[in-house]
Nucleic acid binder design. Structure first.
Lengths: 120, 120
DNA sequence: GCGCTGATTTGAAGACTGTCAAGGTAGAAG
DNA sequence: CTTCTACCTTGACAGTCTTCAAATCAGCGC
């Protein structure tokens, strides 16, 4: 795993309630918006999608850099943002570092956006 | 409805597939990331939550500005970002402007983040 | 018409973000 | 130990975003 000083995945505040059911608290909004912000870049979304849909649920960085017209450091930067948002996790195996998505985090976001039953 | 030049809600590219099932195309990532970026700010998330959870499914701007330590123009700016992302819609009734969420847009995002069945 | 209230637009300042080149680390192989 | 590959970090720059004050627009009532 990369060295990387701080960057614990943030707590899942109020994990299961929908955004649409009742107003978010300031703290909940802070945590959720940090994750949505991480998804708010097309490169990061594609990276996440590539990792999630890759065979075995994980992908090596070398498999991610191809397919982007971006430098290695830039891909590395985006992976770090996804990691610090608690959306993915990296593991070193030999020379390569493999990333996988943390499904629980995706589920939390998906749930938060689920429209309230009364609204449909 | 506010004047506002361009800003049609963007097309729902590939509306129902999950991010985790197969890699996003560049275009899909562009559309989705624009919406996630709009959610990537705690103020906007709270605004969306306030509107969605408000009685009747809609809220007047005057009801939104209270509860934030922000100027009117700033709230207006965030509402515009949400509107241009296709997440909310505004309607003028007399002196007041009422905003409501577009549930379809939320559903699209929620679906995109739904973890693949095989992953759980 | 004039003024008042609610909401947006404009313009500007400061903070933040995406990107790359250059340099640094970690493990494997000679 | 030296070198090579894979990946990360640092430093810097251009572009974008958040915020506010000031000005503007839209409707209502006098």
């Amino acid at each position: 795993m990369p060295k990387q000083a701080a960057a614990e995945p943030p707590e899942l505040a109020g994990c299961c309630s929908a955004l649409t059911a009742e107003p978010l608290t300031t703290d909940e909004a802070e945590v959720l918006s940090q994750r949505f912000k991480a998804l708010g870049d097309p490169v990061r979304l594609r990276l996440l999608s590539l990792i999630a849909s890759h065979e075995g649920g994980e992908a090596c960085v070398c498999e991610l850099t191809t397919g982007f017209d971006l430098s290695g450091p830039t891909i590395s930067h985006h992976l770090r943002v996804l990691r610090e948002a608690g959306l993915i996790d990296g593991q070193r195996r030999g020379t390569w570092i493999y990333y996988r998505v943390l499904p629980e985090a995706l589920r939390t976001l998906s749930q938060a956006l689920r429209p309230a039953a009364a609204m449909i």
